[in-house]
Amino acid sequence: MVINCIEKNIPFAFIRLPNNKHIYFIKEDNKGIRSYSFVSFDTTKKYSFQFTEFIELKDLRINNKYVLPLTRKENTKVISENNYLKLLRKTINYIENKQTEKIVISREKWIDKDSIDPINSFSYLCEKYPNSFCHLSYWNEKEIWLGATPEVLGSYENSQFTTMALAGTLPDNNSAQWEQKEINEQKYVTDYIYEKIKKYVPSLSLKGPETLHLGHVKHLITYLSVHLKNTTQLSELIHSLHPTPAVCGIPLESSRNYILKNEGYNRDFYAGYIGLETPDFDKYFVNLRCARLYNNGALLFVGGGITAQSNPQKEWTETELKAKFIGESL
């Protein structure tokens, strides 16, 4: 099954939906009525394939029958801690001068590894993070992505659309208490999403904010839900919501322009979104807690929301914590 896909260069993925124990294998079939897709942060790049069925897998590790070929990455240079701190200080100064309210700054982190076992890493993520969307996505021999994202951009089932405002990050321990910086950051995201949805429907329900525990870190989260009349509204809403302030900033355009001008690297599919569309449901996940895999290591992507109250050293530490999500699985 997997070997045949690799030999014929057929895209495929292993996926596990949030709060669901079942692991599925899906592969490209142009006659299929379901689809799986990746959209980049800047929406200029998209991979997608149609598929026929969800093939449930009971055990991924039997006799190592799923072996994925990985290519080598030659240039592994990424931003240093010192230069990242300089960028954060520059960003805080930009915000303090009233250019914007919040900007999400991210970076790449390279982890050297003599050998990578994508299947074992994916299995680890499924076990460790049951309320995240876990995936191992093979687009071609040079683009193999691994991830466990906790953030839903949108979910549509039985005419009900749900999404979440996820922002604010602290170490997941009792001594770390929410401060005004994190509370404000999360409220920015909630208010933004609320106003976006209001353009499509007159009323919606909110639940939160509450704390979402994710092992190494915890976040503030608010759930938003609304009744949608049709899937045309769904498509428009998803395009309207991306990118949210949780991965970009407020105001949207000035934050995005700042990111593209100053971050210094291409986010690619990081902070873009993953789509899973079927006759029964449509689900879209923000592509966070992810990595691109190579045979000599993995390129991880991490970031955080910067406001006038941000402390650069704490923000660096936050990204290091987030890197553990994927790093510990390798």
Rank of each mutant, 00 (worst) to 15 (best):
Y24V: 08
I92G: 03
K142L: 11
E182K: 01
S137W: 03
N311S: 14
V302Y: 02
Y273I: 13
P245F: 08
A246G: 08
G275L: 09
Q160G: 00
K21R: 06
Y294W: 07
D114E: 15
L276Y: 12
F54I: 10
Y270F: 15
K46W: 00
E141L: 12
K181L: 07
F25D: 11
K21V: 11
V189G: 04
K207A: 13
Y284H: 11
L300S: 05
S121A: 15
G154K: 00
G275V: 09
N173S: 11
N158E: 14
V104G: 04
N97G: 06
C126G: 13
I259F: 02
R89T: 15
Y192W: 14
N262H: 13
V189K: 00
K181Y: 02
L234M: 10
S80K: 05
N131Y: 12
F161C: 06
K322V: 09
T231E: 14
K45A: 03
E143H: 02
G272N: 09
L330C: 04
P171Y: 00
L241A: 10
I55Q: 08
I238T: 06
S310D: 13
A246D: 08
Q99L: 05
D112V: 09
E96V: 09
L224C: 10
T231S: 11
P11G: 09
K102W: 01
T163F: 02
V201Q: 12
H219V: 13
F325D: 03
